[in-house]
């Protein structure tokens, strides 16, 4: 009786673990893939990604309620200031359902880079965003160089190195 119960329990547990491994239906843009274009309302007029072709683009998907996103803002300001002359453009797409929330956030967190608003969440679906924030480094030909989920200071150094090598290796 006991062993039978334990077997049932064990089988159910294995099934549970297996289904975790298989439940991924992900399709995020991978390195070397071409990015889709988009046109979104921005802080200063429409933001069209293809208008920035020829620049190295750091594309960031963020929301006002996401803690690591808040932490990434000073760093994105720094990157934009440091590498603007060399051809880096930071584009941050806000995904708040209520753009008002994003405006409040921007009033407190200064952004020295391009900000666009996608309150319907169309672009993150196409880019396969898996967490908040998610960023893509896109080369001058519109190809994905890097995808990164989350934001931690430990990771930001690594991303900066990738920006530097992308700017130098053109």
């Amino acid at each position: 009786m006991k062993t039978q119960k334990m077997k049932k329990f064990g089988a159910a547990f294995i099934a549970l673990v297996l289904s975790f491994g298989l439940s991924s239906n992900a399709s995020a843009l991978d390195k070397g893939e071409k990015v889709p274009d988009f046109s979104l309302p921005g802080k200063q007029g429409a933001v069209k990604l293809s208008d920035k072709a020829g620049s190295l683009i750091y594309l960031d998907f963020w929301a006002s309620w996401c803690g690591p996103c808040r932490q990434s803002f000073p760093w994105m300001n720094e990157m934009q200031a440091k590498y603007k002359a060399k051809g880096l453009q930071v584009v941050a797409v806000n995904l708040d359902a209520r753009t008002d929330d994003a405006m409040k956030f921007l009033a407190q967190n200064h952004a020295d880079f391009t900000v666009a608003f996608d309150s319907k969440g169309q672009t993150p679906r196409v880019f396969g965003v898996k967490g908040m924030p998610t960023s893509f480094l896109i080369d001058r030909n519109g190809m994905v160089l890097m995808q990164h989920v989350g934001f931690k200071h430990a990771d930001s150094e690594d991303i900066e190195k990738q920006i530097q090598s992308a700017l130098e290796g053109k």
């Binding site: 309620w65 995904l95 359902a97 998610t134």
Partner: peptide
Amino acid sequence: ASVQPWEKQNLAK
């Protein structure tokens, strides 16, 4: 229905 990462505004509270 799967909730997307950018739709978790309230779940983040």
